[in-house]
């Protein structure tokens, strides 16, 4: 998918706490064309939230607001999203899988977002290119 970025429809969004709502509306409008069932929409929303929230929180130094580009490509196979920022290099896919078998008392708060995203998507890739973090993922139609 990363090879087809020129086909994506992109919008730039300030990477602040309102970014998720703006991105969600943009993506859901595009997804509407595909007439996807609710469980697929759920997967799109979840993956978008987890990846985007990471960018908003960690890409840019505190007190500064960068831009996150959110792109969308719909075709007969399904929907692909691209989330790109110009912040510090960060590959969320390198995060270790959280331990899911431990008792409640020992469970760490957080760390589940990327794991859930991987479970929701059919493919996901990260690339660092021209000082940008570029994440693309695909969710196929059922």
């Amino acid at each position: 998918m990363i090879n087809r970025l020129n086909e994506f429809n992109f919008i730039p969004i300030p990477a602040d706490e309102k970014a998720l709502e703006t991105a969600r509306q943009f993506v859901l409008e595009q997804a509407e064309r595909l007439n996807l069932p609710a469980p697929i929409i759920f997967k799109i929303e979840l993956a978008l939230e987890e990846i985007l929230v990471n960018v908003v929180h960690y890409a840019y130094p505190p007190g500064t607001t960068g831009v996150v580009d959110v792109g969308c490509l719909t075709d007969e196979a399904g929907i692909s999203l691209c989330i790109a920022d110009s912040g510090r290099p960060f590959n969320p896919l390198e995060k270790e899988k959280p331990d899911l078998d431990i008792e409640l008392e020992e469970r760490q708060i957080g760390g589940l977002g990327i794991f859930l995203t991987r479970e929701m998507v059919d493919a996901i890739e990260y690339r660092r290119e021209q000082d940008r973090n570029i994440i693309t993922f695909t969710i196929r139609k059922p």
Partner: peptide
């Protein structure tokens, strides 16, 4: 409830730990 992400799980875990 039709939607739940890691933010929701985080809240559930926090509340649960306090109650326990």
């Amino acid at each position: 409830l039709e939607y739940l992400s890691s933010a929701g799980l985080r809240s559930i875990l926090l509340v649960s730990k306090k109650l326990k």
